[in-house]
Design a binder for these strands. Structure first.
Lengths: 243, 243
DNA sequence: AATTATTTGTCCGTATGTATG
DNA sequence: CCATACATACGGACAAATAAT
């Protein structure tokens, strides 16, 4: 298990505070010396932490005038740490989930089409292995969720477009984070959040799988679109139930 | 003018070296003391720089066993610094441009549709102002390029989806970086790289503009798709000419 | 299983640079 | 143009982790 360094811990602590509005955009942070006292770390560690936040465009340091929180639209949202802070944030977690799904809807069908067109034999073998794992874990929701993740990943990685693959990998991790949070916050509805694996869903995956393997880009795109639309409906339905 | 700190300079220097293969994934970096000597900075600064690279998942530091370069697929490509290193990289800059365009093709038509559906009056006014600037700069390619950027941005920001907006903003910046590099590396073909503003192109923008303002999501999506496809053809044509 | 060597991680005293009032 | 307040930079010391012996 990887141990977090102190600067990482501080990055997370301050990052969460900013996301949750404890410190708002435009406001100034205390000076480094104070901050390091507040968090019980040395100035060195605090400076490294601030640099970590600056790299994510959460803050900007200015000599003499101090370090300020940048406006929200500057933040580097496509960063796993930032996403985890957002998904843990109390407010509007569902909006975050829907926004992610919107992006997913734009990209993943295209990614599936690219995979159908570009996948090498090696990549196809990996996709096949992942699909077979899906078939075998139909009765174990937890194992199925993991297998589902890997299945989608194997398709994403076959796109031969690293930019798209990197993005979708991050997106899927964000989806998991966000779903985890939603599930734990209202565990009465757990069955709804965790997509229940059924033979019907497996068949959808089979359609996608066969389209990709046979190189049918149009079909792969269309099946993927339907799959994501279904997930979105599920999210929206759960949301309404919350009211 | 903003002055770069030393650690930022070092981040860029090492980042570029890694992207250009001077140091390859899996390889170990010299220890901090050596590095700080090599680059003529203190260990403090070097540590901050390494933290900046670690935040972008370019490297990982391990106690005792040293700091290693992570595999390419771990890199945080959706980061302006990383994109700038990639676009300056000699090798396969065109692939980078095409990959970006692929992602753009997935997202921006959807973004246009969302903007048509969700834009507030205020946002529509901004889009209108940007479009009028386009009309006025038809005879000045440089001013037109800037106006074109702002026009697309004004639509992106009207999506009411911060995740998508942040992504597309980054993507457009990446496109500009990459195009700049391509243009300077082969300035014989400048006319081809820089899309020449014509009344026909303006009319395409007008179609997009009117679709968004009138709330016709389908039309907005379709026009945007056509526009990006044209750009892609242009890139591919220029590429073939290079051979 | 215990020891050592190597490298990152942490702390702090001090000095310099820079934008603001 | 000066003073002030802050970030930035330096370097020596020590702590912690872990690969090698």
């Amino acid at each position: 298990m990887r141990v977090k360094s102190r600067s990482e811990e501080v990055v997370n602590a301050i990052g969460k505070d900013i996301v949750n509005g404890v410190i708002s955009p435009g406001e100034r942070l205390p000076k480094v010396e104070e901050l390091s006292e507040d968090y019980g770390v040395s100035r060195t560690v605090m400076r490294e932490a601030l640099q970590g936040l600056a790299a994510r465009k959460i803050i900007r340091a200015n000599q003499r005038s101090g370090t300020v929180v940048l406006p929200r639209n500057e933040w580097q949202l496509w960063d796993l740490s930032v996403m985890s802070w957002l998904s843990e944030s109390e407010q509007r977690n569902e909006k975050f989930l829907l926004d992610l799904t919107e992006v997913r809807l734009g990209l993943e069908p295209d990614a599936a089409a690219l995979a159908a067109k570009n996948a090498t034999e090696e990549e196809k073998a990996k996709i096949t292995a992942c699909f077979e794992r899906l078939e075998q874990t139909l009765d174990d929701p937890k194992a199925w969720a993991a297998a589902d993740y890997d299945f989608h990943l194997s398709i994403i990685e076959a796109t031969n477009n690293q930019l798209m693959a990197g993005l979708l990998k991050l997106l899927h991790k964000g989806l998991i984070l966000s779903r985890e949070k939603t599930v734990t916050s209202l565990n009465e509805h757990t069955e709804l959040q965790q997509e229940q694996p059924t033979t019907e869903i497996l068949n959808r995956h089979r359609n996608l799988y066969e389209a990709v393997i046979s190189g049918d880009a149009e079909q792969a795109k269309s099946v993927m679109t339907d799959m994501i639309l279904r997930v979105r409906q599920l999210i929206e339905a759960t949301q309404e139930q919350q009211i």
